[in-house]
């Protein structure tokens, strides 16, 4: 007789889903806490090896080393050239490539 009412059934389903949803947050902080020492270890290793990028895409040098890549390879012909590596469409060029030059004001020299 408990869930014979339609609205009770609906609310029960929503309540269960809400409970699962809330659990994800609890689980998240649990996992974070558990992985904290491992993360610290990773940062340590990365610092020791002097690494500058994460190894997510190994297809092309400008997707493997996002922060180090030169402007030449991906933009060889035209900045809007069609990307042929899938990961190239997932990552954006670093800010430094498209940074403005205001900071050079008064510091640039005119070549003779």
């Amino acid at each position: 007789m408990y869930l014979s009412r339609a609205s009770d059934r609906a609310f029960a389903i929503v309540a269960v889903l809400a409970a699962v949803w809330l659990w994800t947050f609890a689980d998240a902080s649990r996992i974070r806490a558990r992985r904290a020492p491992a993360r610290a270890g990773q940062a340590e290793l990365a610092a020791r090896l002097g690494l500058t990028d994460i190894c997510l895409f190994t297809e092309a040098r400008y997707t493997r080393h996002l922060s180090q890549a030169d402007a030449f390879s991906p933009y060889q012909d035209h900045p809007g050239a069609v990307e042929h590596f899938p990961s190239g469409s997932l990552v954006v060029p670093p800010d430094s490539w498209i940074a403005r030059h205001a900071h050079l004001a008064g510091q640039a020299t005119v070549p003779r």
Binding site: R39, Q42, A43, A46, A47, G50, L51, T52, D53, I54, Q68, D70, A71, F72, S73
Partner: peptide, 20 residues
């Protein structure tokens, strides 16, 4: 961001015609 928090402070590359 947390992993790379202690990457080298400054890196110097050499560019010729836009290429490394």
């Amino acid at each position: 961001v947390t992993t790379l928090a202690r990457s080298p402070e400054l890196l110097v590359q050499r560019m010729v015609a836009g290429r490394h």
